[in-house]
């Protein structure tokens, strides 16, 4: 099975990190994968996205143009990518920041007030990980087991104090 994921939002929301987390989790599960960021004149407040492919087979093109899973954390991203999702795909919407509903009727949609939930747990910058927790729950693209080890792997020793709060954010998203 191959799952093509596109995560998009404003620069600074951690969309690249969310993708990196899924990629690392896939790596630790011995899956094939690729992670490709948008790069260039992006900056905090600009748009950013990343393509993540997790598969049981070698990954061909790392570019996701027709995502199975779309995660959007701002309105421009929903506007831009909504119609690219494959029929039967899944769209995850941060409903704190995106007021409108998804117009497609041939996809599963999950509205998560991720930014509000992040504020509620005292981690206002971790809406990305709340979204990621929900993605893991609803897609099973990677397993929820072992997410702590993945965090240990991905968060540098210098920032080790952030591990617990990231875990909490993932947990909150998973149970949202």
């Amino acid at each position: 099975m191959t799952t093509q994921i596109l995560i998009a939002g404003f620069g600074g929301q951690g969309v690249l990190f969310a993708g990196k987390f899924l990629a690392y989790k896939g790596l630790l599960e011995d899956k094939q994968l690729s992670w490709l960021p948008s790069y260039g004149p992006e900056m905090r407040g600009g748009t950013a996205n990343c393509s993540v492919i997790i598969s049981d087979e070698p990954v061909g093109s790392p570019i996701v143009s027709k995502p199975d899973v779309l995660v959007v954390m701002n309105l421009p991203s929903l506007d831009k990518y909504e119609n690219d999702v494959v029929p039967g795909g899944k769209i995850f919407v941060d409903s704190t920041l995106i007021e409108r509903k998804v117009e497609r009727t041939d996809v599963d949609v999950y509205y998560i007030p991720a930014t509000q939930l992040a504020i509620d747990i005292g981690a206002p910058t971790l809406a990305n990980m709340i979204m990621t927790g929900k993605v893991i729950k609803e897609t099973g693209v990677v397993s929820y087991d072992g997410i702590e080890q993945t965090l240990t792997k991905i968060i540098s020793a210098r920032k080790a104090n952030l591990k617990d709060i990231n875990f909490k954010a993932l947990e909150t998203g998973y149970n949202a």
């Binding site: 994968l33 690729s34 992670w35 490709l36 960021p37 790392p62 570019i63």
Partner: peptide
């Protein structure tokens, strides 16, 4: 190329 430089893979 830019893609090869920027992408991550195992």
């Amino acid at each position: 190329d830019g893609t090869m430089g920027q992408m991550m893979e195992p």
